[in-house]
Simulated scan of single mutants.
Amino acid sequence: MQMHRRQFVCGDCNENHLTRDSMETHLKAHHHGLFSESQLPIVLDMCDRPIDDSEQSLCILCGEEMSLSKLQSHLAMHLEDIALFVLPSSVEDGEADGGSKMTNQAAKLKSEVERDGDELYGFSKAVNYETTGI
């Protein structure tokens, strides 16, 4: 998580910035002339710091404030909820396919085929024209 949660701290005035671009703007505006344009990438690298684990941070999904150390498991919970939400719901159907679960859509299509007999997904079964003589 420390590779993703970074901050940029100015070495002269201890001002914190969340993005490299913001720090670059700060350095150019407030510390102009202390370094050349070619030195700027090196200075920015020197300002790059990990955010302290005890620092309070907001969850981007629900807005709850918590320490960075708790945020990882909190976000994992949200991601699991999202993953479970997009999975199709299941219907227990012991006879349908040997006791395994079948999705609602598959169970509905199967019952329609069983009810209609000769139609599958709204289409009639193909007719073998060679054997029917048509």
Rank of each mutant, 00 (worst) to 15 (best):
M1K: 12
M3S: 09
R6T: 08
C10M: 01
C13G: 11
C13M: 05
C13R: 10
C13V: 06
N16L: 14
N16Y: 13
N16E: 15
H17V: 08
H17T: 07
L18C: 14
R20N: 02
D21V: 01
D21F: 10
S22G: 14
S22F: 00
M23S: 02
E24S: 15
T25P: 02
T25E: 01
L27A: 02
K28L: 10
A29C: 14
H30Y: 04
H32V: 00
H32Y: 08
H32S: 07
H32E: 03
L34A: 11
S36C: 03
E37H: 04
S38D: 07
P41C: 06
V43I: 12
V43L: 12
L44M: 04
M46N: 08
C47L: 00
D48F: 05
P50Q: 00
D53W: 15
D53Q: 04
D53M: 15
S54E: 00
E55G: 04
S57E: 15
I60C: 05
L61A: 09
G63C: 02
E64I: 11
E65P: 15
M66P: 00
S69A: 10
K70F: 09
L71H: 01
L71V: 00
Q72K: 09
S73Q: 14
L75N: 03
A76T: 09
M77W: 12
D81S: 12
D81W: 11
L84P: 01
F85K: 09
L87A: 10
E92A: 11
G94L: 10
E95N: 14
E95I: 10
A96L: 05
S100D: 14
K101G: 12
K101D: 08
M102I: 13
M102D: 03
M102F: 03
T103K: 06
N104V: 12
N104A: 14
A106N: 00
A106G: 06
L109C: 11
L109Q: 13
E112L: 09
E112Q: 04
E112G: 09
V113I: 09
V113L: 03
V113A: 03
V113R: 15
E114C: 10
R115G: 02
Y121W: 08
Y121K: 15
Y121R: 08
G122R: 02
F123G: 01
S124W: 06
N128D: 15
E130V: 13
E130M: 08
G133L: 03
I134N: 14
